[in-house]
């Protein structure tokens, strides 16, 4: 029944700013799956991921005025909102559970071995996990867990410069995998 219309990005942004329900619905239909996937990569728990997804769309809706198209694509902006919201959720959850950061870190080495949902076979994480171990760990810690390079250097007990270089290399490799 619904006639599918493709919106250009400026149109989407303009109509979202005009508070269009229809365009919000369109945005959700087109991007919720992609954002859900990245949230799952970080949150690792389905129930919680659903809550985060909801929170992310409310943030997109409330903060659309602050989106600056000169800095990048709408999707990049939304992806960053989703990533940040997911990392915040994991941190506040682990804080509530009185979990030590170190335990979280240890999860990296035991990935897939816990009772948590296996989300390394989906989305971006699947690609990252195809990288060499030394790169994979860095992207996991920095991108999916949100640690700074400084923190990672201390955690892994390797020089900051090495973290920087390896991470850049990892991202270049990732780009090559993603490249259409």
């Amino acid at each position: 029944m619904e006639v599918v219309k493709k919106y250009s990005e400026p149109e989407l942004v303009r109509l979202l700013k005009q508070r269009s329900r229809h365009v919000f619905s369109y945005l959700y239909d087109n991007y919720s799956g992609a954002l859900h996937s990245i949230i799952l990569n970080i949150v690792n728990e389905e129930e919680l991921a659903n809550d985060v997804l909801q929170e992310v769309f409310i943030k997109i809706w409330k903060q659309i005025e602050s989106y600056d198209s000169s800095k990048g694509r709408l999707f990049t902006w939304m992806l960053n909102i989703a990533r940040n919201a997911s990392i915040d959720t994991v941190r506040s959850k682990s804080f509530q559970n009185s979990r030590q950061n170190r335990e979280l870190t240890e999860d990296v080495y035991t990935a897939g071995g816990t009772s948590e949902m296996k989300t390394d076979q989906i989305g971006l994480k699947k690609l990252v996990y195809s990288l060499k171990e030394e790169y994979k760990v860095l992207v996991e810690l920095s991108y999916f867990q949100g640690y700074t390079q400084d923190e990672i250097a201390k955690m892994l007990n390797i020089p900051l410069g090495t973290v920087k270089t390896r991470l850049r290399t990892a991202l270049i490799q990732l780009r090559e995998i993603i490249k259409p």
């Binding site: 991007y31 919720s32 799956g33 992609a34 954002l35 859900h36 996937s37 990245i38 799952l40 991921a49 659903n50 997804l53 694509r73 999707f75 990049t76 992806l79 989906i122 989305g123 971006l124 699947k126 690609l127 780009r175 993603i178 490249k179 259409p180």
Partner: peptide, 13 residues
């Protein structure tokens, strides 16, 4: 490219 990858790896909520 990142958007394309994310869309192709989408998981419907």
């Amino acid at each position: 490219a990142l958007e394309q990858q994310a869309l192709s790896g989408a998981i419907a909520p």
